[in-house]
Design a protein around this nucleic acid. Structure first.
Lengths: 342, 342
DNA sequence: AGCTAGCGTTGAAGCGTTTCGACGGTGTCA
DNA sequence: TGACACCGTCGAAACGCTTCAACGCTAGCT
């Protein structure tokens, strides 16, 4: 193993000088810097992470707490996790993965052991047990999702309210009057998942403003449940010409069921999905969809926490900041003008 | 911050005793152990990760290198990542996430800095650049996937050869004679992804033994490419009655296309998928599928590397061990006896 | 009785960094 | 010309933990 002392010897300077060259925390002459850098190269020196963490009291690690749940669309989580990891590396941080099932104790463990300098929490519930722990430990954190009480913490999330409104507007613009909103399974609403509630609220408000009649129905995302949901919708509101689908699992079944029931998309009914573009492209017809960038979500989360870590030892007192990412509507082949009344 | 010295003072012992109680590396009297444990509780002591890593030369961290690529089914990767994380915790390890784009340098960085004690590499290619680095650094590692030259490393993977054979056997048992194998996009084969090649080989060999005629066609997994692939298959071999699908994205389109072309599943054609059970259940009809457990893959990978880390300082020389996980066939509604010849 | 073996505990020596205070040298200003 | 500030470098003191050698005991053996 090559240590800082080896580098110092090789470059003919003291080890503190090497440290300062690497950290840039003190002025070092051009000449010395050059020599040290080259020694580092030649010897293949990488500072020992443990020693660094111990001396500097910073591990340069960010912990990312991911949900175990599988009732949300998994690729999105993965995309966020990867975006977080690459963004973190660009700021000199590594990412430690921990699972939600460690719960508040996990947060305590990570914070108290100094394993990570800060945390990013995914799948935050409105009233989350981990938040008080964060405050008690004085740990820096960013929440992905909005919590009830985020004083002193930073949050980032998609603007689901805007996403819901975009759907309502698009269908209203096309002349549709009766819409069905196919949501997630009832469990998601019962645990007050913010994204589900906020999308629905955004849709509902805008639908009201635009004079749309609409129905909200839960759906587990299997073929059977989608069939049941659709049957009930058509029984209750035979005049429905627009569908908003939030549960990714229900999209395929819905399209198949509409087709077998003799309804053509988009001539007879329009379908708009709340899902990733990649997924929307996979269906036939390609789906008009409202999307937020998971990549950006991860990137912003990292920037928030890195910002906090940087200012928190300058004595700067970071305010609670919350970022809402604007979703985009991409019109494809699954939506069209409402059919003329018979 | 609570240190080991605080605990020692509180319990009226020396800090080394506290350390031994916690690590269990020396005999400690029942009485002392009790007192120390209770002090740990009361004070809420968590050993400082950096100091621990520095003194013991072990970080108790395993690095998991995940692919950025999205051409394989993403939820599986996530499932593995989570399985690795939970399994690692059970052995007292945390998991550091790094992305494939760091490449061999990433491996060097992690190994040389002592950030992680060992690595788990996903998406290993047959001739992987990271493997020589691993050997040069003398770092413990487990590969998920099989490499050309895995001397001194451990590997774990699904037995894709057996999976392919299971598909062939099942269709042969049902009396099918002409089969189409719908694979991944050509890019996957060009970069010699082991799982794709091995599945195909397993299928091909067994199909040969069982006297099946078959066609292998690549497919990108979009609706259009599936339509093109299917059209070519039906043109070349109109008598095809069995389909094996490996590309998850092609499943939905294939079922839709078969239906619109007037073919009923499973009466006219049988479809067997190589995918997770969860996904297979989502279609109508539910798909007969061959599956390997992603959870187990993650768990075994962790056990291999933890085993190596344990024996590697006992001077034990761990052999290269490779584990192949047996896949299972679950018969559902999408396969049935071959139709009688007209 | 004398010797060895093991038990439970301790003090102290690292582990490889960062960072503080200090030092000589150089330039600037009065 | 003297005082002062700043620059580039260094030595040494942490940082909080693990682990080794050593200690005084008691117990078991010859």
């Amino acid at each position: 193993m090559v240590t800082i002392a080896d580098v110092a010897r090789h470059a003919g300077v003291s080890s503190s000088t090497v440290s300062y060259v690497l950290s840039g925390k003190r002025a070092i002459s051009e000449e010395t810097r050059r020599r040290v850098r080259s020694s580092v190269q030649v010897l293949g020196y990488h500072p020992n992470a443990g020693a660094r963490a111990l001396a500097a009291r910073r591990s340069h690690i960010i912990a990312l707490m991911v949900p175990l749940r599988t009732d949300v669309y998994v690729p999105v989580m993965m995309e966020i996790a990867i975006a977080v990891t690459t963004a973190a590396r660009q700021h000199g941080y590594d990412v430690l993965l921990i699972t939600n099932d460690e719960g508040p104790d996990g947060v305590r463990r990570i914070a108290a052991s100094g394993l990570a300098d800060g945390l990013i929490l995914m799948d935050v519930e409105l009233d989350d047990e981990r938040i008080p722990v964060l405050r008690a430990q004085g740990t820096q954190a960013t929440l992905i999702g909005l919590a009830d009480d985020a004083r002193g913490l930073s949050c980032v999330d998609h603007d689901f309210v805007a996403a819901g409104a975009l759907c309502a507007d698009h269908l209203a613009d096309l002349g549709h009057r009766e819409i069905a909103f196919i949501g997630y399974g009832s469990g998601v609403y019962h645990r007050h998942a913010g994204y589900a509630e906020r999308t629905l609220a955004g849709f509902r408000d805008r639908a009201g403003q635009r004079g749309l009649r609409f129905l909200h129905r839960t759906c587990e995302g299997t073929y059977e449940s989608t069939a049941g949901t659709l049957a009930r919708v058509l029984a209750d509101r035979p005049g429905t010409t627009g569908f908003v689908v939030q549960n990714e699992g229900a999209i395929g079944p819905l399209l198949t069921l509409l087709r077998t029931s003799g309804r053509t998309v988009p001539e007879d009914v329009s379908v708009i999905a709340l899902c990733q573009d990649q997924l929307a492209e996979q269906f036939a017809p390609r789906l008009t969809a409202v999307t937020g960038s998971a990549q950006e979500l991860g990137r912003v989360a990292v920037e928030q926490i890195v910002g906090r870590l940087a200012t928190s030892n300058d004595g700067g007192r970071p305010d609670d900041d919350r970022a809402l990412l604007t979703p985009t509507l991409t019109v494809r082949e699954s939506t069209g003008p409402a059919p003329l009344l018979p």
